[in-house]
């Protein structure tokens, strides 16, 4: 068990290191001169040569490549990703300040997505009425195809401006989170529904389901006692990427609803070409992916007895 966890931790550390390295190469080495990009900032025309020189020595960009990389990596290990160009505070601090807001939003969105998605999948697969199956089955492809920002704007139009049920913008109170969370949840729910219903359909065709039916089991026992559990497993493995995508969804959702959060921070950072902040966000995304995957890996053996930790299965 310990070895299993250790192995997974090691893998996670590798992904984080690789994500940091990839982002370092993209952000600092690819442009040739990151400093002039940063200094040029928001379409400012004149680049202040003094500022460039100051930044250059501050980032150590006048040294050889490998040295730059190792210095940066060493700092990153101490959670130092550099100073934000925009407001002069540490990049990690500007991210940490707004992170709780996004976590709230993402958690609400995720809960909503799991609820909606699995309800839709089970209803669409288990219903005996072919019309209901057809109608519900056409929803997930639709949910996947609509742009997230459009969903947000339509919700805003309908619920905030027409019906005046929820505030249009801001972070104040529980009501302000409903529409952004729904915006975030709809595409994710569609993906969950699509994956789960596909997996359910496949599971229902398995010989062991026929065998349960041959024992005289009711449809309810077949569906909820056997099929759903088996079908949920492939969906569970996608959790890591699903959660990562919530982060991407937050970029759009927070922009539409003008909420503070790391999504909005991403947009402003890209806009002002604030490389230290962008890199922090990329690495944060990798951290979230790694942590979720680790949690899934640890839950997995509890759900699926075939995954055996530590001991070998008897043939």
């Amino acid at each position: 068990m310990l070895r299993y966890v250790g192995q997974r931790l090691l893998q996670g550390a590798f992904v984080l290191w690789a994500a940091y390295t990839v982002s370092f190469f993209i952000l600092y080495l690819l442009p040739g001169d990151a400093v002039s990009i940063m200094a040029s900032g928001d379409e400012q025309n004149a680049v202040d040569p003094a500022l460039v020189a100051k930044l250059r020595s501050e980032y150590g960009l006048d040294r050889p490549l490998y040295e730059q990389y190792f210095i940066a990596l060493g700092r990153a290990l101490q959670l130092d990703f550099g100073i934000s160009i925009k407001n002069g505070v540490a990049a990690t601090r500007s991210v940490a300040e707004v992170l709780p807001e996004t976590i709230k939003l993402a958690a609400a969105g995720f809960a909503l997505a799991v609820l909606l998605g699995s309800a839709l999948a089970t209803a669409a697969t288990f219903s005996r009425n072919p019309w209901v199956r057809q109608a519900l089955g056409s929803l997930p492809p639709l949910g996947i195809a609509v742009p997230t920002f459009w969903i947000g704007l339509l919700l805003l139009q309908l619920f905030s401006f027409r019906l005046r049920l929820f505030p249009a913008i801001g972070n104040d109170g529980a009501a302000s989170i409903v529409l952004p969370a729904l915006t975030l949840a709809i595409p994710t729910a569609a993906v969950i529904a699509q994956l789960l219903s596909r997996s359910l359909r496949q599971t229902l065709g398995e010989p062991y389901i026929e065998q349960v039916r041959a024992k005289g089991a009711s449809e309810a026992l077949i569906n909820f006692g056997h099929a759903l559990r088996n079908a949920a497993i492939p969906t569970l493995t996608m959790l890591g990427i699903l959660v990562g995508n919530l982060l991407a969804g937050a970029v759009v959702s927070e922009t539409v609803f003008s909420r503070a959060g790391i999504g909005r921070l991403t947009v402003t950072a890209v806009n002002s070409r604030d490389i230290p902040v962008v890199q922090t966000l990329v690495v944060l995304a990798a951290v979230i992916f790694v942590v979720t995957s680790l949690v899934v890996d640890l839950i997995y053996p509890l759900v699926d007895p075939r995954i055996n930790i530590g001991k070998t299965a008897k043939a």
Partner: peptide, 22 residues
């Protein structure tokens, strides 16, 4: 494939945004 795994670990929109930055 390890490199591809890392690219998959970062949501594609965020990856695109990072590229746009530079």
């Amino acid at each position: 494939m390890r490199l591809m795994d890392v690219l998959l670990a970062i949501p594609s929109l965020l990856l695109s945004l990072a590229l746009i930055t530079v």
